[in-house]
Every structure is written in structure tokens, then in C-alpha cells.
């Protein structure tokens, strides 16, 4: 197990790990909230202008500014070297919005919502007290997909963040590419020992990078398979 101990003893890797946890947790929160507040209004057939608002969002799935224009906007909004550059440029995650919207439309019984409205509930209450609790299974899917996306992401971090803010995969890359022994860990050791430890850390950190997501996804496997099922049938 010494490879794993060394991974967390290494300050760069440890920082990277903490950063990844931070970005994943906050990013997933951001993702779930934005997906839900976008999907719910769009799922209400009685909302005036629903079609146009949907088009407004859906266009962004097919057309975009491209790498550089987006980068420039991020820079101009002061988000360089800021964690939020990892979340905001992705917009509201339209793929997820559509999945959740379809779920709301097809899996939340209208009678329940109507009953709540008759009891005097306003839109917010219906959303929070009826729709959200009933959508646990799809929320689990969105949570897992978001976590995976943020935990594994390295490219946005590469272009928008500084070295100290790098998430784990990016630190991992630095380690994998260097072939010499890593001096900040192996100061007191002989050459052979240092090399040995470096190689061990390479393997261990790859597992550290991959393990969290591998452990989580089986728990929601049933749900995302179902999600695709409805997607395929409805087209």
C-alpha cells in the first residue's frame, strides 16, 4: 500500500486531489440546480413561450462560438484562474436538461401536481414539494453523470487555471510524463529506490484517479439504462 500512501504524501498530488473533490462537489451542485430550474419550467406545457425558450436553449447544442471565442468571453468576464470557469462556460448542460424535462413530462403524475395546485400551492411549492422528491431516480443519474464529468475533466482546467489549482488528472499527467524520479518525494533515497517509488506512485495515482467513479456508477446503472430506454423509444 505504500504507493497509495506516497500519493497522498506528495503535496502536488494531494492538492490536486483536494481540488478535484472541490470542483466535483461544487460543479455537481451547480449542474443539478441549473438543470432542474431549466427543465421544470420547460416541462410545463401551459407556459407561454415554452417553444421559443426551448429553441433558445436547444440551438446552443448544435451551434457554438468555438474554443477561442468562448475563452475570450471567459477572460473578459474575469473568470480566468477562477474555479467557476470550469462550470459556467458549459452553460446549463442541455443534454441533461432534455433527459430531466422528459422525465418530468412522462413520469410525474399530473394528478399529483393538480391536486397540489388545488390545495393552493404555487409553482415553487409544486416544484419543491412534489416534483423534486418524485424525481429521485433521474436526479441520481444527473448527479453521477455530473460527478464523472467534473472529476475526469482536465482540459478546461488546463486552459483556464493555474498550476496550483490543477485538478488531479492534470497533476497525474505531469507525473506520467516525467521519467526521472520525483525529487520532492524522494529526497533522501538512493537512485534505485527513488525510481521505484516514482513508478509505484504512477500506478497508484492512476487508480486513485479512476476508482471513485468506478465505485459509484454501478449504483445508478439501473437508472441510466432506464433513462436511455425512454429516450430510445421516444426518439
Amino acid at each position: 500500500m505504500e504507493g497509495y500512501k506516497a500519493v497522498f504524501a506528495n503535496s502536488d498530488l494531494f492538492n490536486g486531489f483536494i481540488n478535484s473533490v472541490k470542483y466535483t462537489v461544487i460543479g455537481t451542485l451547480y449542474s443539478v440546480i441549473t438543470v432542474y430550474i431549466t427543465a421544470y419550467p420547460l416541462s410545463r406545457k401551459d407556459l407561454p413561450g415554452r417553444k421559443w425558450i426551448s429553441i433558445f436553449f436547444i440551438i446552443t447544442m448544435y451551434f457554438g462560438g468555438g474554443l477561442i471565442p468562448t475563452y475570450l468571453v471567459v477572460r473578459d468576464t474575469g473568470l480566468l484562474n477562477n474555479m467557476w470557469a470550469l462550470f459556467l462556460p458549459g452553460g446549463v448542460g442541455m443534454g441533461n436538461v432534455i433527459i430531466v424535462r422528459n422525465f418530468f413530462e412522462n413520469n410525474i403524475p399530473k394528478e399529483l401536481m393538480e391536486a397540489a395546485e388545488i390545495d393552493g400551492a404555487d409553482n415553487f411549492t409544486v416544484f419543491l414539494k412534489v416534483v423534486v422528491p418524485l424525481s429521485r431516480s433521474i436526479m441520481a443519474v444527473i448527479v453521477v453523470f455530473s460527478m464523472v464529468a467534473f472529476w475526469n475533466d482536465w482540459f478546461t482546467a488546463l486552459i483556464y487555471l493555474q498550476k496550483e489549482q490543477y485538478p488531479f488528472p492534470l497533476v497525474l499527467r505531469g507525473i506520467l510524463i516525467t521519467t526521472e524520479a520525483m525529487s520532492n518525494m524522494t529526497g533522501g533515497l538512493g537512485y534505485a529506490e527513488a525510481n521505484r517509488l516514482t513508478e509505484l506512485v504512477k500506478f497508484a495515482s492512476m487508480i486513485v484517479a479512476a476508482a471513485p467513479m468506478l465505485i459509484i456508477y454501478p449504483f445508478v446503472q439501473k437508472y441510466f439504462e432506464q433513462g436511455f430506454m425512454t429516450g430510445a423509444v421516444k426518439g
Binding site: 430550474i37 431549466t38 446552443t60 457554438g64 459556467l88 416544484f127
Partner: peptide, 18 residues
């Protein structure tokens, strides 16, 4: 509810298109 998503989309999706 839609205000925030619309603003985010405008700034980070539509302005880059522009």
C-alpha cells in the same frame, strides 16, 4: 427560475457565437 439559465446561456453560449 429560468432567469439564471437564460443569462448564463446568453453570456457563455451566445456571446461567443457573436
Amino acid at each position: 427560475l429560468l432567469v439564471i439559465p437564460v443569462v448564463i446561456t446568453l453570456i457563455y453560449k451566445y456571446i461567443p457565437m457573436y
